[in-house]
């Protein structure tokens, strides 16, 4: 599988990464290379293996329904560039 320039441009937009026009073509080549390398996995015969989303036999851990976190607005907003009171703020989002 290989990616063309237009696809890379679209992925960059969706990921909100600014990629200069001149870099699109080389990036397409690099990404295609990575995909090609991963594609080697296709050579493994998986016809007898049930689909899986992970490689471990561990069960998903569950938590009890207990409220025991939060109550730290200051810590949560500590790294925010422009916190006002207990709120995060961002440039106005107009709908």
């Amino acid at each position: 599988m290989s990616l063309d320039k237009a696809t890379v441009r679209r992925i960059a937009t969706l990921a909100r990464i600014e990629v200069p026009e001149a870099d699109l073509e080389p990036l397409a080549g690099e990404l295609s290379g990575i995909l090609g390398w991963i594609e080697q996995l296709q050579e493994v015969d998986t016809s007898a293996v049930a689909p899986m989303t992970g490689g471990t036999d561990v069960k998903l851990p569950w938590r009890a329904d207990v409220a025991n976190d939060g109550g730290m607005a200051e810590a949560v907003t500590a790294n925010a560039p422009d916190a006002q009171g207990a709120f995060f703020t961002v440039p106005k989002v107009v709908e």
Partner: peptide
């Protein structure tokens, strides 16, 4: 996460790092 779900609490007071 373990943060509570109560409606109408002080802003960002029911937020965990998750």
């Amino acid at each position: 996460s373990g943060a509570p779900t109560t409606f109408g609490a002080e802003p960002n007071s029911q937020v965990s790092f998750i």
